[in-house]
């Protein structure tokens, strides 16, 4: 019977994404910021704060019209050597906040069309393993700024 057969095929196809969605109410992304490029710099780092609302998720990529390439990167100090590693994904544990910040996790932009100037803002779309893509507005701070522009306290820092 054609009808029964169709149902048979459809059920497993629907079941997989449904199971994934059940574990993930989505990812919120805020405090997206970058530093102005210094001199003729053609690279920049974007920092953002991510929170997996439901189940575990993973950040798997980012894109922005401002840069030819956006890579997930982590800076780390290895016995007195500054190194950066490219990451395929960044784990977002359920219910936890993951903060990208200078000296650690960042989204490295290369092949910038235009320098990033303090006061600029631009869209960045984040892609996740489970949650729908999220587009955030990245605000540009001074070169070498340590915190997002606008004097926002970094989330999770318990500033009082």
């Amino acid at each position: 019977m054609p009808t029964r057969r169709a149902v048979f095929l459809t059920v497993p196809l629907l079941a997989l994404p449904a199971a994934a969605l059940a574990q993930t109410a989505g990812v919120t992304a805020d405090h997206a910021w970058a530093r102005a490029t210094a001199g003729m710099g053609r690279t920049a780092a974007v920092y953002v704060t991510l929170h997996a609302e439901g189940g575990a998720d993973r950040l798997i990529g980012a894109t922005t019209p401002r840069a030819g390439m956006a890579m997930l990167h982590e800076s780390f100090d290895d016995h007195g050597i500054s190194r950066m590693r490219m990451l395929d994904a960044v784990d977002l544990p359920p219910g936890q906040t993951v903060t990208f910040r200078p000296g650690g996790l960042h989204i490295m932009l290369t092949h910038l069309g235009q320098p990033l100037v303090k006061g600029d803002s631009f869209p960045l779309t984040l892609r996740f393993a489970h949650a729908k893509p999220v587009t955030v507005t990245v605000k540009v701070a001074a070169p070498g700024a340590e915190t997002p522009p606008g004097g926002d306290a970094m989330p999770g820092m318990n500033m009082q």
Binding site: R35, A38, G39, M40, G41, R42, T43, A44, A45, H73, S75, S82, M84, P102, G103, H106, M108, L109, T110, P143, G144
Partner: peptide
Amino acid sequence: TFCPDVCP
């Protein structure tokens, strides 16, 4: 100067 994170 292409150092996006640590050098700045």
